[in-house]
Nucleic acid binder design. Structure first.
Lengths: 197, 197
DNA sequence: AGTCAATATGAATAGATATTCATTTTGCTG
DNA sequence: CAGCAAAATGAATATCTATTCATATTGACT
């Protein structure tokens, strides 16, 4: 068996177990059992429990960044780019619910430990949003009064909260596509009624 | 000493300790020490460690809801109401940073255990936002295409993410007032440049 | 001052579990 | 097939900590 096989087998098992029980309640032996591996084997591939979480995060978010950037390259219009980003972000819930749950949890759960470790992968991810906004402003399509640094957080926060709703709610009231459209519409056009001006 | 004194002494200590170490890494003995109380005393006021977290959450968010609702009563315009809500939400960071940290953390960290316990206090809090949006739509000021149920989540998520940035970042780049203005402006007017139509 | 119930104490318990490491298994090479 | 290094095992270790409960303190009332 290739080395990487076991590494990724453990990672996949960890995603499943962390999603099910949360990081602190997940036991190493749970992950080992799920990965069909001895407890000790995990320590041949990871330094400790935190290390599983961190490398899981970096590996998986790295893949997502690559995929989203590839999709965005094929589109020119900033509005449609924003749509693509939102849809892709929410799509993760349908395609990889466990992973979505872990990534979301981790971002908060470990606030304390996130303070120490500079989370460059996460920053790279949300910087995709600010790049879109910058581009829109350069072209005169987006309002220049808006700070891309704040807007990227605002948009990410909004999408993340919608994800949380889906994760907690067993029977979501809205479809994924509907949600992405609503969120984008809100950010692009705002709450105000255009007819009222 | 009045009974309620000790209860709130423990709650205050728990806020401090949870903010400092996170829920899972906080020891009961840490909270007891901080509250200047014996370990066992805590169990006279709370059933277990989770119970401290839950009642802390309900008590404190209850107070915040009262305060915000009171402020909103004195304002009529939905746009300005939204401003007030945003500013008050962010103000929590300046006034009670530890509490803000715990409330935020708890909402995610305990995703797993939140699934069981219907968090009515939290729902009551974000329903303040949807009420504002409804009012705006009834008056024809806000776009009727926007779902208040989605928008309340989007707006809360955005504010919450801005809070997270402040908590993690030791030297925030934006002032609190500036942040509230930017977030509201984004939600009210949208990203699109009005001049480009 | 004495009685009693309510409060508070903190040492002891009971259980959990991350990590280590002596041993075994695997699979490659000559 | 023998020899060997790398990989894998899982029982044992070492520590940690939520919760309990027998005991002590407090303070209200007579």
């Amino acid at each position: 068996m290739r080395v990487s096989d076991k590494h990724s087998k453990i990672t996949q098992a960890a995603v499943k177990v962390f999603a099910q029980k949360g990081f602190f309640n997940a036991r190493i032996s749970d992950i080992a059992k799920e990965a069909k591996v001895a407890d000790g084997t995990i320590y041949l591939y990871f330094n400790n429990k935190y290390d599983i979480l961190i490398s899981l995060f970096e590996d998986e978010i790295g893949k997502i960044i690559l995929q989203v950037k590839l999709l965005l390259e094929q589109e020119d219009d900033p509005c449609r780019k924003l749509h693509i980003f939102a849809k892709q972000h929410l799509l993760l819930l349908e395609e990889k619910k466990d992973l979505a749950e872990v990534l979301q949890m981790e971002l908060r759960q470990s606030n304390k430990f996130m303070k120490e470790y500079r989370n460059t992968k996460f920053i790279e991810y949300i910087d995709i949003i600010s790049a879109i906004i910058h581009q829109g402003q350069d072209r005169g399509i987006f309002n220049r009064d808006i700070s891309p640094g704040i807007a990227k957080r605002v948009i990410f926060g909004a999408l993340d909260e919608m994800s949380r709703l889906w994760i907690l709610d067993d029977a979501p009231h809205y479809t994924l596509a509907e949600t992405a459209d609503q969120v984008c519409n809100l950010f692009l056009n705002g709450l105000k009624n255009p007819a009222s001006h």
